[in-house]
Computed example of a mutant assay.
Amino acid sequence: MTMYTDTNNRLTALPHFGTDPGSLSADIYVPKNFPKNGPLVVVLHGSTQSPADYDLGSGWSMLADECGIALLFPGQRLINNMIGSFNWFKTGDSQRGEGEPLSIRQMIKQVVDDHAIDPSRVFITGMSSGGAMTSVMLATYPEVFAGGAIIAGLAYGSASNMIEAVMRMNGIGSPSDNRLDALVQDASDFDGPWPTISVWQGGSDTTVASSNAGSIVAQWQKIHDVEGEPTRVETVDGFPRKVWCAADGRVMIEEYIIEAMGHGTPIGAEGDKGLGEAGDYMLEVGISSTRHIANFWGLTQADAAIADEPKTAA
């Protein structure tokens, strides 16, 4: 197992952020070039990881330096979960106004207030249990986020206990598409505009079955009025990207399936635009999900066209 040391930690603790009913930790990174009314990205680590681990592997703070992005890293405590997973499947930690989701919402408010962040440019991403908790946050607090990116995660409400969670992770017994849609619709009183959705998944993942990516896409298709087959399929950095576009051409949902990849976050650490560092669940496959997610959200400049411009047809 790759071990990261404290010398790699670029993050600073956020000591106070409301009542914290989920008993989480919080770290932040605000680069020196962060502009007033700049964007915030919330980054959720996976099981057995710390915020510093995930930042080092994914390269988010490197990209923050490059593009002027503030970062918030919620952290799980072992007292809440013995392997450091977010409790996305527990009823008390998957509802609006309760547990871990409310703690994360309180952190976001604190950082937005402290650093003059544009509240219309708050985004969230996570991997594995962090990806599943990203689904929870997008469903329960959709008004907070302009977009979300779910990596090796699961659809919101797909499990309500540990046994169901293990079954869903293995691709067994997912709710119907209509039920998945209703779960999000019923999670809050929000009626749009909804956050855009980016889905990343390893096709050879034996921890979270790749069928979960399809469930996540299905959960958001009706909400975004983009049901059916993708609008187009492109090739980006050698990998297929499916996109579902609104009537005006805006991409509302994108999906990357990295066929030969196992369980983890896709990184591309090499080259001038490389980010991150390979390690446990941080998988060097030649494409940086971090950079492409930021592109999708319009947080980079030269590369932002990826969100709207087709590449090579697959």
Score class of each variant (00 low, 15 high):
M1W: 11
M3K: 09
T5L: 08
D6L: 12
N9K: 08
R10K: 15
T12I: 12
P21T: 14
P31T: 13
P31E: 10
K36F: 08
K36I: 15
V43M: 03
P51V: 10
Y54I: 05
S58I: 08
S61V: 07
S61N: 03
A70H: 09
A70F: 09
L71K: 03
F73I: 07
G75L: 13
G75I: 11
L78E: 07
L78S: 04
I79D: 11
I79P: 07
I83W: 06
S85K: 03
F86Y: 15
G92A: 15
G92T: 13
E100R: 06
Q106L: 06
M107V: 06
M107P: 08
M107Y: 11
I108Y: 06
D118A: 14
S120P: 09
R121V: 08
M127W: 03
G131Y: 03
V136A: 00
M137Q: 00
L138P: 02
T140D: 00
P142D: 03
V144H: 00
F145D: 02
G148A: 08
I151W: 02
L154I: 00
N161E: 03
M167C: 04
M167G: 00
G171N: 00
I172D: 10
S174D: 04
S176R: 06
D177M: 03
D177K: 04
R179G: 00
L183Q: 07
A187G: 09
S188N: 05
S188E: 10
D189K: 10
F190H: 07
P193G: 00
W194H: 01
T196N: 06
S198I: 01
G203V: 05
S211W: 05
S211V: 09
N212G: 06
N212P: 03
G214M: 06
S215I: 07
S215P: 01
Q219S: 02
V226M: 10
E234H: 05
D237S: 11
K242H: 12
I253N: 11
E255C: 14
Y256R: 11
E259S: 12
A260E: 15
A260C: 10
G262K: 08
I267C: 13
A269D: 08
D272R: 08
L275V: 11
L275F: 10
Y281E: 02
S288W: 14
S289L: 13
I293Q: 07
A294T: 15
A294S: 15
F296S: 13
F296Q: 14
W297C: 09
T300I: 14
A302G: 15
D303P: 11
D308Q: 13
E309W: 13
T312G: 15
